[in-house]
Structure formats: structure tokens, C-alpha cells
Design a protein around this nucleic acid. Structure first.
Lengths: 228, 228
DNA sequence: GAACAGAATTACGAAATTGTAATCACAGGG
DNA sequence: CCCTGTGATTACAATTTCGTAATTCTGTTC
């Protein structure tokens, strides 16, 4: 499932790691120098990088900085040194974990899994407005209203989003138009009015709904919670 | 410009405040009891509420709780009492500020302005992804890419948003399809492929762009920063 | 009640969107 | 050099979107 980029110049260690990780079900890409690793980045897209600190043509930490320009994939440093400043520098250059040789393969496995899990967790949660009986999801282009979900066209969604994000306060035609279209124009009233009308219909808004869109006398709209 | 709801049973104080505030350019709605204030809420939509704590038919704090169900408009309590627990209770019931009588009208003005300013500040800032040379704005339905702004249709925007929010990691056809359509289906590949193709064209993506959308051999896509 | 004004809704048609299917491009293997 | 499979692009058509304009609705004034 996951792709691991292994950067290691000791061929024995590389072979052992590679075999072990492939048996665990990972796809392993190997590189024995900074240069080949950089090259491989163009080809494979790793989910995680195992990176030896000492490499024949440069420092693993430098490579780590290059890597960070391309991906957020977690980096685990592998090293013989166990000095503190090396650890600190590793983390500072963007590393996520640090394992000192010699290490137990099951420890390696556990740390890899931990990093991958962590990365999977901060998965996509779209921005949403959530009010009681009313939610607006800009990513999905949907709104739930009084228990039902509706897929709304862009203009209506934008208006609902504006109203919902400032529930209870008045928003003028001009503000709405300006926010949506970037500029203002003579006949903004009609356009907004029509779209709000469409919005109400789409949401099946009526006297029984928990919210209403009220118009004030001087060209402003308000989304209000109706309380019986 | 702004509408202020003034709830005060002392007719002298009400008149003085009303006149002063109207001279300052506010639209003032008055109520002398909890009941009329509740009723006025249905009619006017205040941007700010000035609320006497002691009212003939109830406690201003109770009204404050009702109010909060309808609007986030700031509430400033007006009171003769200056005991601490009254202040605490006022804030607890949702009040934003507290002025003890007698007060200077210019102090009142300053506090009103402060509250309105505060409310205006937390104004709508849409969720965006911002990377160097690439931004995605779900609200506006637009993306900027290498300096140009493009208005994208929903499907393409959704895909770009997913890719951009996980730049550098592989996302499968299935994941994209499932996230966008909610369910998975047999022929998800083609649909996603076509939309990604359209997306590239819309963004004028070519070899010279700072990002590329690369496809892996096993049905996955990656958004990558191209480094020369 | 007539007349009117402004708001709300509906009608309409041009343009955009988008899933499906057809076509093109291209690499690997015979 | 021809197949063949796969990915990328293009073609197409049904549907949706959406601004404008027409119409209806509603409340107010005379």
C-alpha cells in the first residue's frame, strides 16, 4: 500500500531493510546517495522516507530540506551517532523521528506505522459552518437544512454561506454582490433577490422552518432562527 | 448605519440616549420591557443591544439568553447596581460589556463603537489553501496558479482542493471519487481522469508550470512542486 | 377600492457543467 | 511493423446554472 523511500549507502543494511519492509507489504524504493535519492523523488512519490544521516555525497539533513519542498511525507532518520545535537539537528531540518543503529526491525516497523498513522489522521476535513439544523459545506457544495441535505448551485451556496456565517446580522445587497462578484454594479438588487428566492425554494423554506431569510426595508437580508 | 436596540424602562434615560445616539448617526429602536423587546426582535435586526438589567416585567439577563438564540450582536448591559456578582452574571448570560449608571454619553459611544468594531473584525474570511504560486478558494470557486486567477467548475475545484491539501502524497482515483461523490462506483477512473484533464487545461498547466499533476502506474495522482 | 411601489417569484434563453463514449498517443511485446 | 493495453484528450449531449426581464404578489396611500 504505502511507498517508502529508503536512502542508505550500506548495501547490507539496505538489503535487510528492503526485504523486511517488502514482506510487511510496503513498496520500497532504494537510493544509496543524495543524488540518486533526489532523482528518485522525481519518479516515485513516497509516503515515508527512511534516511541515513551519513551519505557518501552529502548530509541526510540537507536532503531532508530539499525533500520538504516537495512533500510533507514523514522522515525517519537512521544513524549510528546517538549524540544529542545530531538528534536536534535532525528534527530541526524537518525530520519526524529518529532511530539509532543498531535497531530492532520490529521497532522500525512500529515507528513507521506510527508515522503513517499520524499522517493519515490529519486527513481532509473540509471547512464547514455548523449551526443547529443548518450546515453549509463549501467543499461538497451542499447544505443540510432541517434534517435534509441539498446540493446547491454556487451562487446560492455563496449567499447561504455569507448569511450563515453572520447569522442574525444584516447584510446588504451590495455586500453580498461585492463579495461574490468582486465588484459592485448598478443592478445588483435583482440578481441577489432572484438567487435568494431560488435558495429558499431549494431548501424548501417555509413558515415551519427553523430559519428564515428576512428582508429589511432598506435592502438588507438577515438569516434568523425562528423561535416559536 | 448600524441599528441599536435600546431596552430601558426609564423614559427620561431612554429619551436622552435615543437622541444622542440618533445624532451620532445610529438607527435606534426602543423597548421599555422584556415583552416589547422580544417583539421588536422579530421586526428589527439589531447590530447591538443596550440592555437595562432591571425591567418591569423581568430580568435583562433572561432576555439576553433569548436574544442569543437569534443573533450574535453584542450586548451592553446598563445598570445602576455595581455589585460584582451582577457583572459576573451579566457576562455569563452572554453580555459583552457592562456600563454602570450614571455614565458619560461619550463613554457610552466609545464602548458601542468598540463592540461594533470588534464584531466587524471577525468578518468573513473564507477558508483557503495557500501554497506558493497556488491558492484554492472554495467560497469564490477560484484558484490562482502561477500568478493568474481562474474560475473553476465545482468538480475540478474539488479535485484541485484535495490534491493541494495533501500536496506531495498520492491519492487514488477511488479516494477522490469517494470523497466527491460520497460513494464509489465501477467506472470511477474515467470520470476522474477526464476532470483532471479539464483541470490542467483550465489552469494552463504545462512543462513550465511550478506544479504538475503526475499519475502513478497504479491509479493514483499526485500534485507536485516542480523544481528546476 | 384604485393606483402605485417595491419586493418576490417565475419565465426564458444563453452559457457552462459534466458524465459517458469515442478518439488519440504511446509504450512494450511479439 | 503491427497489435494491444493503458492513459490522456476530445466530442457530444443532457442537464444545470444564472443573469435579465416579465409577471405576480403585497402592502401603503390616496
Amino acid at each position: 500500500m504505502s511507498h517508502i523511500l529508503l536512502v542508505e549507502d550500506d548495501s547490507d543494511i539496505m538489503r535487510i531493510n528492503r526485504t523486511f519492509l517488502e514482506n510487511e507489504g510496503y513498496t520500497v524504493h532504494c537510493a544509496d546517495s543524495v543524488q540518486t535519492a533526489s532523482f528518485m523523488l522525481e519518479e516515485c512519490v513516497p509516503d515515508l522516507v527512511l534516511l541515513d544521516v551519513m551519505l557518501p555525497d552529502g548530509d541526510g539533513m540537507d536532503f531532508c530540506k530539499i525533500l520538504r519542498q516537495k512533500t510533507q511525507a514523514p522522515v525517519i532518520f537512521l544513524t549510528a551517532r546517538d549524540e544529542n545535537d545530531s538528534v536536534v539537528m535532525g528534527f530541526r531540518s524537518g525530520g519526524d523521528d529518529y532511530i539509532t543503529k543498531p535497531y530492532d526491525l520490529n521497532v522500525l516497523k512500529a515507528r513507521i506505522e506510527a508515522q503513517l498513522r499520524r499522517n493519515a489522521k490529519q486527513s481532509p476535513q473540509h471547512p464547514k459552518i455548523e449551526l443547529p439544523e443548518l450546515t453549509v459545506d463549501l467543499f461538497a457544495g451542499t447544505a443540510t437544512f432541517d434534517g435534509n441535505e441539498y446540493s446547491l448551485p454556487q451562487r446560492e451556496l455563496q449567499i447561504l454561506y455569507m448569511l450563515a456565517s453572520q447569522i442574525g446580522s444584516r447584510i446588504s445587497y451590495h455586500d453580498i454582490y461585492k463579495t461574490i462578484y468582486g465588484c459592485d454594479v448598478e443592478d445588483s438588487k435583482n440578481t441577489i433577490r432572484v438567487n435568494i428566492s431560488r435558495l429558499k425554494k431549494h431548501l424548501n423554506m417555509d413558515d415551519m422552518s427553523t430559519y428564515e431569510i428576512a428582508a429589511t426595508s432598506d435592502g438588507e437580508y438577515v438569516l434568523r432562527r425562528v423561535i416559536f
